Amino acid sequence: MDETGKELVLALYDYQEKSPREVTMKKGDILTLLNSTNKDSWKVEVKITVNGKTYERQGFVPAAYVKKL
C-alpha cells in the first residue's frame, strides 16, 4: 500500500496499450490498483513524467501482467 492506503501492483512485463481504455507500463513499474474485480484486466493508475511534470492516467492492464504488493 502507498502512503494514502491504496493498494499497489508491480508490473511483471512490459505492456503497450491497445486501446484508449488501457495504459502502457514497463516491467518494474509500480502502479496504484483501483479495481481488481475482473479476473482478466485490472484498472490501475499510472504516473507519467513529461518534461519534469507528473501526470496521472487511469486505464486497464492484463491482470496476469501485474502482481499485488
Rank of each mutant, 00 (worst) to 15 (best):
L10V: 15
Y55H: 08
Q58T: 11
K68H: 07
V50C: 12
I30G: 01
L33D: 02
F60Q: 02
D14S: 07
I48P: 00
S19L: 07
Y15A: 01
V61G: 00
V44D: 00
E22N: 04
N38V: 05
K53P: 01
V50L: 11
L31G: 03
D29H: 04
N51A: 10
N38M: 09
G59R: 00
Q16H: 12
I30C: 07
E17N: 06
V9D: 00
T32S: 07
P20D: 11
E3L: 13
P20W: 09
P20H: 09
S36N: 07
Q16T: 14
D40M: 11
A11C: 13
K68C: 10
W42I: 02
I48C: 12
N51E: 10
V9T: 00
T32P: 10
T54M: 10
G59K: 00
K18H: 07
L10C: 12
N51I: 03
T37C: 14
T49I: 12
Y55M: 10
S41G: 05
G5F: 13
V23E: 01
P62Q: 05
E7P: 10
Q58Y: 06
E3S: 14
T24H: 03
G59D: 00
L8G: 02
R57D: 00
D29C: 08
E22W: 06
S36C: 14
Y15M: 02
L34N: 02
K43Q: 11
E45T: 09
E17A: 15
Q16V: 14
M1V: 12
T49A: 07
T37V: 09
D14V: 05
K47H: 10
L12E: 01
L8W: 14
L69S: 02
V46S: 06
I48A: 06
Y13L: 09
W42F: 05
K39C: 12
V9L: 11
E56N: 15
K18N: 09
E3K: 13
T37Y: 09
E3F: 14
G59F: 08
N51P: 02
V44A: 00
N51W: 06
G5P: 14
T54L: 09
P20N: 09
V23T: 03
S19K: 05
K67W: 07
Y15I: 01
N35P: 02
L12Y: 02
E45G: 13
K27A: 11
G52C: 06
M25E: 01
E17C: 13
T49C: 15
L33E: 00
L33C: 05
G5C: 15
R57I: 09
K6I: 12
V23H: 02
T24W: 04
K53V: 14
W42T: 00
G5D: 12
N35W: 06
Q16N: 13
K67T: 12
K26M: 08
T54V: 13
R57H: 06
T49R: 09
K43M: 15
E56W: 15
R57N: 03
K47F: 09
V50H: 09
T4I: 12
K43P: 00
S41P: 01
L31M: 13
A64F: 08
K6M: 11
Y15V: 00
V50P: 00
F60S: 03
V44F: 03
G5Y: 13
K39V: 10
L10H: 03
R21Y: 15
K26V: 07
A11L: 05
V46F: 08
L8Q: 09
E7W: 13
N51S: 08
I30W: 04
L10S: 03
S19T: 11
V23S: 02
Y13M: 12
S36F: 05
E56H: 15
N35V: 07
E3Y: 13
F60L: 06
P62C: 08
Y15Q: 01
G5M: 12
T4E: 12
G5R: 14
K43V: 13
V9W: 04
Y55R: 06
A11Y: 04
R57K: 11
R57E: 01
L33I: 02
V61E: 00
K53S: 10
M25A: 01
E22D: 06
K18S: 10
T24F: 04
K18M: 10
L31W: 03
K53D: 08
K26W: 08
G52A: 04
L69H: 03
I48G: 04
L8F: 15
W42M: 01
